[in-house]
Nucleic acid binder design. Structure first.
Length: 343
DNA sequence: GAATATGATTCTAT
DNA sequence: ATAGAATCATATTC
């Protein structure tokens, strides 16, 4: 006791403060609150542990009693009103999102490829269109494309199965949540708008999953297309006669090897290829010739001779028709030199 | 089977 | 739009 009194006397200033604090009810609460959360949790745990079937029944009964209380409707409507206000204020923040451009792009592509959209007929039509777009000749392609179509149909089937699965899961989940909310709306204020919002959230989540599905389907289709429809993969050399015709034109127009549209059409007809193939050929030829003129020298001479001979023949025939006595060998421009001495 | 040729595609610049 | 250039993917040659 002596010690205590000595300490207290030695801390007179503090003692004064303490007394002042004790007089303040707020400080008492502060002091108590330090130890309280743990005690609360302990209580709660205790309660949880103590729950038995009977106590659950009891709780249900109490809930029921509360539901039937005469003040309940009034209180409920007040709560609804408050909530309506807060919910509305929240709603203002997150507006309806516009249709995602990414998903629209994917949709368009899937439709164009015949994966989504109408059944079989549409699919094969799209495949044919794709084949045509890829530049393949519309003939012989049917056998090669049957494999492609089969694979596309497979992708299509998987896609639709997955899509259906997602849609089903989505609607199931939505229903579940809505039922839950409806159930809860009897005991807590839930406005239809809130339900709507919740549904929208669920749909957004599922549509993001759907987008992944669409994305990977698109990738699969692209890979398939590149495997089957890329013209580079089934390249065939033009036949000898066609290359001859093209080379003849090229070397006889070496100073300006740019055939007009009409010339291209004519060449295409002569060679049995498309105009765009003629364009490709000239594009390739020009650049490759330019890159290595030396390498093409021989070929150039060959075609120079050829055209000269052809011209000679035509001219000879003509002159033969006019005057059969004229010989067809002499008097024409000499063939160009050949580096290795051959003709 | 590597080297080369060739038709097609893609990208860039005009 | 078109040409040029680079590149790809297959065909052909040696």
């Amino acid at each position: 006791m002596d010690d205590q009194t000595r300490m207290l006397t030695g801390l007179t200033g503090l003692a004064g403060l303490q007394q002042a604090d004790v007089g303040d009810p707020d400080s008492v609460r502060k002091q108590q609150s330090l130890g309280q959360p743990q005690q609360d949790i302990g209580d709660i745990l205790q309660q949880i542990m103590a729950i038995t079937d009977e106590s659950l029944d009891e709780a249900q009964a109490r809930k029921h009693a509360l539901n039937c209380h005469r003040m309940k409707p009034a209180l409920f409507s007040v709560l609804c009103e408050i909530k309506e206000k807060t919910v509305l204020s929240i709603r203002g923040v997150q507006e309806e999102d516009p249709p995602d451009p990414q998903i629209m792009r994917l949709d368009n592509m899937l439709l164009a490829e015949g994966v989504s959209g109408p059944e079989k007929g549409g699919g094969s039509a799209a495949a044919a269109a794709a084949a045509a777009a890829a530049g393949g000749s519309p003939t012989d392609s049917s056998i090669e494309h049957s494999d492609y179509r089969a694979k596309l149909a497979q992708i299509r089937q998987i896609y639709h199965a997955e899509l259906e699965k997602y849609e089903q899961a989505c609607s199931e989940f939505t229903n579940h949540v809505m039922n839950l909310l409806r159930e809860q709306s009897r005991t807590r204020p839930i406005s239809p708008k809130e339900i709507e919002r919740m549904v929208a959230i669920i749909h957004r989540k599922f549509s993001s999953i759907q987008m992944q599905l669409k994305q990977s389907t698109c990738e699969a289709v692209m890979i398939l297309r590149s495997r089957f429809l890329d013209a580079r993969r089934k390249r065939r050399n033009f036949n000898k006669q066609a290359t001859e015709v093209l080379n003849e034109y090229f070397y006889s127009h070496l100073s300006n090897p740019y055939p007009s549209e009409e010339a291209k059409e004519e060449l295409a007809k002569k060679c049995g290829i498309t105009v765009s193939q003629v364009s490709n050929w000239f594009g390739n030829k020009r650049i490759r010739y330019k890159k290595n003129i030396g390498k093409f020298q021989e070929e150039a001479n060959l075609y120079a001779v050829k055209t000269a001979v052809d011209a000679a023949n035509v001219s000879a025939q003509a002159s033969q028709a006019n005057s059969p006595a004229t010989p067809n060998s002499g008097g024409y421009p000499a063939p160009c030199y050949t580096p290795d001495g051959r003709l």
